[in-house]
Simulated assay, not measured.
Amino acid sequence: MNIIISNQSDLPIYEQIAESFKEKILSGEISGGELLPSIRSLAKDLRISVITTKRAYEELEKEGFIETIPGKGCFVKTKSSELLREEVLRKIEEHLINAVHMAISYGIGQEELDEILSYLYEEGGRHE
């Protein structure tokens, strides 16, 4: 499992781990029903505390991304495609809200912002 932790990030390590798993689940890289690495194994691979890994898994479980089955491990919850879509839309909205705030603060109008978004979408998100 490829999870990158940055010491430069403002996010605590457990949040970085949880966010990494969320992205992998939402993108379909990790599918519903898939067994996650054990808490100890992930902690050893990432060279971090078991407590930190446990906290990341607890966050994921609290948010409904994974479930723990005693004696078997932690598994990605099988969500309906509609729930996954809603989660992805929520993340997109967060990014767009930031873009709108930035545009407003620099005096860029909605029409120009719409043009930028249309262009980026047509280019498939490629940014040079």
Score class of each variant (00 low, 15 high):
Cys74His: 12
Lys91Asp: 15
Val50Glu: 15
Asp10Thr: 13
Glu112Pro: 02
Lys72Leu: 01
Glu59Lys: 15
Gln16His: 07
Arg126Leu: 15
Asp114Phe: 01
Pro70Ala: 11
Asn2Arg: 10
Asp10Ser: 14
His127Asp: 15
Gln110Ser: 10
Asn2Lys: 13
Ala43Ser: 13
Glu19Cys: 12
Ser38Cys: 06
Gly73Met: 00
Glu63Asp: 14
Glu15Gly: 02
Glu112Asn: 07
His95Pro: 01
Glu63Asn: 08
Ser6Phe: 10
Val100Lys: 11
Tyr119Pro: 01
Thr52Lys: 05
Pro70Lys: 13
Glu63Lys: 04
Thr78Trp: 07
Asp114His: 01
Leu117Pro: 09
Pro12Phe: 06
Gly73Glu: 02
Ala103Gln: 03
Glu86Ile: 04
Glu58Met: 07
Gly107Lys: 03
Ile25Thr: 05
Tyr119Ile: 06
Ile69Asp: 02
His127Ser: 14
Ser49His: 05
Ile116Arg: 08
Ser31Trp: 03
Glu61Asn: 08
Gly124Met: 08
Thr68Ile: 13
Ile5Glu: 06
Glu123Cys: 12
Leu36Gln: 04
Asn98Thr: 12
Arg85His: 11
Ile39His: 03
Leu89Cys: 11
Lys54Met: 07
Pro70Asn: 09
Leu36Arg: 00
Phe65Ala: 01
Arg85Lys: 14
Arg40Glu: 10
Ser31Tyr: 02
Val100Ala: 09
Glu115Thr: 05
Ser118Pro: 08
Pro12Tyr: 06
Gln16Pro: 00
Phe75Pro: 03
Arg85Thr: 10
His127Phe: 11
Ile104Cys: 05
Glu82Gln: 09
Leu84Ser: 07
Glu19Arg: 15
Arg126Ile: 14
Ser6Arg: 15
Pro12Gly: 07
Tyr14Met: 04
Ala56His: 05
Glu115Tyr: 09
Asn2Ile: 09
Ser27Phe: 01
Leu11Trp: 05
Ser9Met: 05
Ser41Phe: 11
Ser38Gly: 12
Ser9Tyr: 03
Tyr14Gln: 12
Gly64Lys: 02
Ser81Ile: 11
Phe75Trp: 04
Pro12Trp: 06
Arg47His: 08
Leu11Arg: 13
Ala18Asn: 00
Ser20Glu: 10
Met102Pro: 08
Gly71Asp: 03
Glu34Tyr: 06
Lys72Glu: 02
Arg90Asp: 10
Gln8Gly: 05
Tyr121Glu: 14
Lys44Gln: 15
Glu23Ile: 13
Arg90Glu: 14
Leu11Gln: 11
Ser6Gly: 08
Gly28Cys: 09
Gly73Ile: 00
Leu42His: 04
Glu94Ser: 10
Glu93Cys: 12
Ser80Asp: 11
Ala103Tyr: 07
Ala99His: 06
Leu113His: 02
Thr78Lys: 13
His101Lys: 13
Gly32Tyr: 03
Ser6Trp: 05
Gln8Trp: 10
Leu84Thr: 09
Glu87Phe: 05
Lys62Gln: 11
Glu63Phe: 01
Ala99Lys: 02
Ile97Lys: 14
Ile48Met: 05
Lys91Pro: 01
Lys77Arg: 15
Lys54Cys: 04
Glu67Gln: 12
Gln16Lys: 07
Thr52Met: 06
Tyr57Trp: 06
Asp45His: 07
Gly73Thr: 02
Lys24Ala: 14
Glu86Asn: 10
Pro12Ala: 09
Ile66Leu: 05
Glu128Lys: 00
Glu122Val: 03
Val76Thr: 01
Lys62Ser: 11
His95Leu: 15
Ile104Ser: 15
Leu42Gly: 02
Arg85Asn: 11
